[in-house]
Simulated scan of single mutants.
Amino acid sequence: MLDQIRDVLSAHGRMAIDPREVDDQADLYELGLTSHASVDVMLALEDAFDIEFPEEVLKKSTFASIHNIAQVVEGLVKAPA
C-alpha cells in the first residue's frame, strides 16, 4: 500500500522531491505538496484504491505525510461499502 501511495504522490503531487525517497512521517507540504496538488492526489488515490474520501477526512493533516495518507486509505479500504 505504501508503495502505491508513493507512486500516486510521484505522479500527481508535483513535488520537487521524489516521494519514494522520503520518510513516511516527513511533512509533504514542506517538501512541496500544495493544497491544489493534494486534491489531484486524493482523486488518484480514490481511483487507485476504489474508495471515496468522506468529507470528515478532507483536511490538510490527512495529506501531510505518507503515514497519515496510509492510515486514512487503510481505514477506507477496510470499511464496509
Score class of each variant (00 low, 15 high):
A44M: 02
D50Q: 13
A37D: 14
A16D: 11
E74G: 15
R20V: 05
K78T: 06
H67Y: 13
D7I: 08
G13L: 02
E52K: 02
E56R: 13
H36W: 02
H12M: 00
L2D: 13
D50Y: 04
M1C: 02
I17G: 04
G32Q: 11
L9C: 04
S61V: 13
I5V: 13
V41D: 05
T34S: 15
E56M: 07
M15I: 03
Q4A: 13
E74S: 15
F63N: 04
I66G: 05
L31N: 13
A81F: 04
A26N: 06
P19Q: 09
H36S: 12
K59D: 14
K59V: 09
L76E: 01
V57I: 05
K78P: 01
L9R: 01
V22I: 14
M42G: 00
V77C: 08
R6N: 07
K78F: 02
V39T: 08
Y29D: 06
E30C: 09
P54W: 07
A26V: 11
L33W: 08
P54D: 08
Q4M: 07
L31W: 12
S38K: 02
A37N: 11
K59N: 14
L58D: 03
S38D: 02
Y29L: 08
E74M: 12
I17A: 14
D7R: 11
S61M: 10
A37C: 09
L45N: 00
K60A: 12
D50K: 13
E30T: 11
H67E: 15
G75D: 13
A26F: 06
T34L: 09
T62M: 10
E21D: 14
Q71E: 15
V73Q: 06
G75H: 08
M1H: 08
E74V: 03
S38C: 06
I17S: 10
L33D: 09
S35E: 11
R6S: 02
D23K: 05
T34C: 11
A48M: 05
M42E: 02
E52W: 00
Q25W: 03
A81Y: 01
D40Y: 04
D40P: 00
V73H: 06
N68W: 02
D3W: 02
L31G: 12
K59A: 12
A81R: 14
V73Y: 03
A81N: 09
A16I: 01
A81Q: 11
M42L: 10
V77A: 07
R6Q: 08
E74D: 15
R14P: 00
L28C: 05
G13C: 03
Q4I: 06
D40E: 13
L45P: 00
V57Y: 14
E21S: 15
A70L: 09
Q4V: 08
Q71M: 14
A26D: 13
D3H: 09
G75Q: 12
L2E: 14
V41R: 03
H67Q: 15
G32V: 10
Y29M: 06
D24H: 07
S61F: 06
I5L: 04
A64R: 15
V73A: 06
H12E: 10
V57C: 08
V39L: 14
K59I: 09
P19A: 10
D24F: 03
I17T: 15
E56C: 03
P80D: 14
L28Q: 04
I69M: 10
G32R: 12
E74C: 08
H67K: 15
A79Y: 04
A16P: 01
I66D: 07
S10R: 13
T62F: 09
A11P: 02
A26L: 07
P54E: 10
V77T: 09
A11M: 06
A64F: 07
L2H: 10
